[in-house]
Design a protein around this nucleic acid. Structure first.
Length: 290
DNA sequence: CTAGATGATTCTGC
DNA sequence: GCAGAATCATCTAG
């Protein structure tokens, strides 16, 4: 304070004198001209850069996924998902979940985008005002201000692009989660496993059900033929890998079928049992009671 | 939370 | 094209 206090008025007066100097505008003109030509000038600023194909791709994808553009609640994406899946039965619940998560992504995207745009315009006007203010005391051309604004916009559009990219990634992850059938794996019902095991162990010598049998088993278990085939494929290999581990299970099922066969009584409600007796000559697992 | 179980997928050989 | 084998991703019991 002691340094400036006394001379503040003096400095202000000098500044004012400078601003009002008759040569000021001429001097500024020359300085600006030199600046435009010199290295101080902002280099490499192309005003009309062509639309970036990467950005366009991101925009198109966000539009297609229902994240950008009019709010459809991800309906189109969910529809596409349903079409890709081809399973209209259990789809509604899954799609509701999908839509909900997509809506979350959409909301975050728009909030962040708005924030970005607002910050950009605030920062731009701040810098513009600052430069205009400074242009009174140092040579700054309107073109320079314009270029500075362009630079700011470019920086912010880079941030926007990153936002778009991460949003796209999030959507893709979400999509893959819902499209990947493995992620929707549900264990078969106890009854279904029972039916399949029953067939497997009673045909242990040749556990290769025919197409007809697979269809029958699929119907009884309320699963698809492919699932039956998968189950038998897995079962065969896992059984073979560790027979001792399955010994107990095998015993329980062979016993069960033996009991069932022995008492073909009225209590058996399975009139359409596909469990055909094992006619092959393969050695079945031996029953070893404890 | 973790290990084991389990349904699905992918690759390979026949 | 099918079966076996390996692997993945999820489910589930403890």
């Amino acid at each position: 304070m002691s340094l400036t206090g006394g001379s503040l008025d003096q400095a202000q007066a000098r500044k004012h004198a400078l601003n009002c100097h008759r040569m000021k505008s001429a001097l500024f003109g020359v300085l600006c001209e030199i600046k435009e030509k010199s290295a101080l000038n902002i280099q490499g600023v192309q005003q009309d850069d062509p639309p970036d194909p990467h950005t366009m791709r991101l925009d198109n994808m966000l539009l297609a996924e229902g994240v950008a553009g009019p709010d459809k609640g991800g309906a189109s994406a969910a529809a596409a998902l349903a079409a890709a899946e081809g399973t209209p039965d259990d789809g509604s619940l899954e799609h509701a979940d999908y839509r909900e998560k997509l809506a979350q992504i959409r909301q975050i995207y728009h909030v962040e985008l708005d924030k970005c745009e607002q910050t950009c315009s605030e920062f731009t006007s701040h810098v513009t005002n600052l430069l205009r203010e400074q242009s009174r005391t140092r040579p700054i051309t309107p073109n320079e201000i314009h270029q500075m604004v362009a630079i700011i916009h470019r920086k912010f559009s880079a941030i926007e692009m990153q936002l778009k990219q991460s949003t796209c990634e999030a959507v893709m992850i979400l999509r893959s989660r819902f499209l990947d059938a493995r992620r929707k794996r549900r264990n078969f019902s106890k009854q279904a496993v029972e039916i399949l095991n029953e067939y497997f162990y009673s045909h242990l010598a040749n556990p290769y059900p025919t197409e007809e049998v697979k269809e029958e088993l699929a119907k009884r278990c309320s699963i698809t033929v492919a699932q039956v085939a998968n189950w038998f494929g897995n079962k065969r290999i896992r059984y073979k890998k560790n027979i001792t581990k399955f010994q107990e299970e095998a015993n329980s099922y062979t016993m069960k079928t033996a009991v069932d066969a022995a008492s073909v009584s009225s209590l058996s409600s399975q009139s359409d049992s596909p469990v055909t007796p094992n006619s092959e000559g393969y050695p079945a697992i031996s029953y070893t009671p404890d």
